[in-house]
């Protein structure tokens, strides 16, 4: 059987909100080392990869590896019934066709349980190699959210260029043009306000803004976001989820004709 308890249930709520617009359904794979998900959007342009480690949970038991086919809009409907301060326990028997979610209020005076129907989903897995990127940029998640929101109101695509001057986001559209440059900045006493640019070589890539904006639905999960860029490769937009794990979004670049 599978059983996992997380006392900070709001994290689970935020995770599902972060990915439900991007992917309709996917297999959450459970194993003794934790929970993971890899799912692409319907056009196979972007991919969500979620890793939650067993030791990040208050309790975690999984006797046997299994995929749990989840419809995320339905998962979200059930999670919306959990209070923000509730502890959430997930339970499933081996080869079950449902996932039980139990919500406990922080003073344990209210307990509710819901069953989510599971689906059988055929999914393609992509092999994503670990690699060194030409540029890695850490910035406040709120700053990333602001940039992609602002630029989406001007254009459809963004050229992201990382140089020793900083990281520049450029777009153009019917309204005109927009450029936002962030410089390396570690002057704040608060680490979450830092912008850290780790540049091995200059790189410039073009991406569809609507996906980058969609990734910012994960802003509530982490104070910082990391962007990783290499020529001719998908961008990685990564949020650390506390001690629990991370959620990564991959987006294929626009390719020159």
């Amino acid at each position: 059987m599978f059983e996992a308890k997380i006392s900070q249930g709001s994290v689970l709520k935020k995770l599902v909100e972060a990915l439900k617009e991007l992917v309709t359904e996917g297999n959450i794979d459970v194993s003794p080392s934790g929970m993971s998900l890899q799912a692409m959007d319907s056009s196979h342009v972007c991919l969500v990869s979620l890793v939650l480690r067993d030791d990040g949970f208050d309790h975690f038991r999984c006797d046997r590896n299994m995929p749990m086919g989840i419809h995320f809009a339905n998962f979200s409907k059930i999670l919306k019934c959990a209070g923000n301060d509730d502890a959430i326990t997930l339970k499933a028997e081996d080869n079950a066709d449902q996932l039980t979610l139990m919500f406990e209020s922080s003073n344990q005076d209210r307990i509710s349980d819901f069953d989510l129907k599971l689906m059988s989903i055929e999914s393609e897995h992509l092999g994503i190699p670990d690699q060194d990127y030409s540029a890695e940029i850490k910035m406040p998640a709120s700053e990333y959210q602001r940039i992609v929101r602002d630029l989406t109101s001007i254009g459809d695509t963004v050229l992201i260029s990382a140089t020793k001057e900083g990281i520049k986001f450029s777009t153009s559209g019917d309204v005109g043009t927009a450029n936002v440059t962030l410089r390396h900045n570690t002057t704040s006493e608060k680490q979450e306000e830092h912008t850290i640019i780790d540049l091995k070589e200059p790189v410039a890539l073009t991406f569809a803004l609507r996906y980058l904006k969609n990734f910012s639905n994960a802003t509530a999960l982490a104070p910082q976001v990391k962007l990783s860029l290499t020529k001719d490769l998908p961008i990685v937009v990564e949020y650390q989820v506390g001690e629990l794990g991370n959620i990564r979004f991959y987006l294929a670049p626009k390719i020159d004709d």
């Binding site: 342009v45 991959y250 626009k254 390719i255």
Partner: peptide, 14 residues
């Protein structure tokens, strides 16, 4: 502005 790439053209399908 270029053509939108698909992920399969960058990563191997397992």
């Amino acid at each position: 502005k270029g053509n939108q790439g698909r992920l399969e053209s960058f990563f191997s399908v397992l």
